[in-house]
């Protein structure tokens, strides 16, 4: 099984879990969009961040 199949399965299961129904044509498009998000996330998920670096509940400067 390759990553593409994992990704397709994830999208189908996660949609189902949330009660979102999409037809076959839209499913292909949602998978494509999620693949883009996955590739974006892979750009920063491996960044080692210090434990004390927290995301603020309300972001303030």
């Amino acid at each position: 099984m390759n990553n593409k199949i994992y990704l397709e399965e994830y999208v189908k299961v996660a949609l189902s879990l949330q009660g979102i129904e999409v037809d076959k044509q839209r499913l292909a498009s949602v998978i494509q969009q999620f693949a883009l998000l996955t590739s974006m996330a892979n750009g920063f998920l491996d960044e080692a961040l210090p434990d004390e670096l927290e995301s603020a509940p309300v972001y303030r400067l």
């Binding site: 994830y10 999208v11 996660a14 998000l37």
Partner: peptide, 13 residues
Amino acid sequence: DRLTAGTLVPASW
């Protein structure tokens, strides 16, 4: 479809 895909982003990401 972009918005729908957004609902699937894991919390850890």
